[in-house]
Amino acid sequence: MLIGQDKKTTIISQIILTFLAIIFSLPILIMLKISFVGKGFINNYLQVLRFDYTFKFFYNSLIVSFFTVLIVLTLSILTAYSLSKLKPIAKNTFFNLILIGLMVPGVSLIVPIFLLFLKFNLFKSYLAMILPISAGIIPFAILLFKNYMDNIPNDLIEAAKIDGAGPLYILRKIILPLSYSIMVVVIIWTFLMTWNDYSTALFFVRDKELLPVTHLPNYFNMATMAAGNIPDYGPFFACLVLISLPIMLVYLFLQKFIEDGVTAGASKN
């Protein structure tokens, strides 16, 4: 073991870790606490749930997440399969160009995309979120799938080829069944990134009816309240907890896949 196994070292480690854990959990505890006080737990959450746009915004986020996952999964599997197991022309050039997508901060490209969406009138469509978010995640997903597929032995594929199987058949019957775990990783991460996204809607959506759930707290903002009194933070923070709830559930049940995604994505740059 890296750290000594004697009692003293273990106790010191335990104390430092506990101290760090208390500091790191404080912001979350503060959020939970504020969502319970003021007019009380039930009233705070009811006020959010009764608000006209709450369900609308949750629904919007679900729709956007669903289609983003669908697009990212389909396109990146096909591309990764070709780059990993087939022999396309200019394979390395394509791969390197795709990797550029990982390096360029998307926020720097908002002006041309804004003008493009203006031209095609996409400001009042879910596509204004689905397309840019998918584009941002696809390079990352391709990298994950390609690294994973590179480890699938080629003998299996050669054997199938001798039996006359075409590339799509091999993808469906050999590659995909062996790639379920990485598919779960990509699905979860795409969902998390889409659900948590704030700025794409800020940049490109100009219709209140289409906003995602991350824009909901704006409607419970304390800034609009009369100065002088102590503002009622309860509903606002209840709203933050509700936004995070699906994330918490996903993390609780699928912790391993989320953590695998981090290490798989960063290990090969």
Binding site: T74, L78, Y81, S82, L83, L86, P88, G101, P139
Partner: peptide
């Protein structure tokens, strides 16, 4: 033919990265 598998992603990346750059 193998390029066809890459094309959809590549078009996406072109529209949202290379064209804007």
């Amino acid at each position: 033919r193998d390029i066809l598998y890459i094309l959809p992603s590549f078009i996406f990346i072109t529209i949202f990265f290379f064209y804007p750059i």
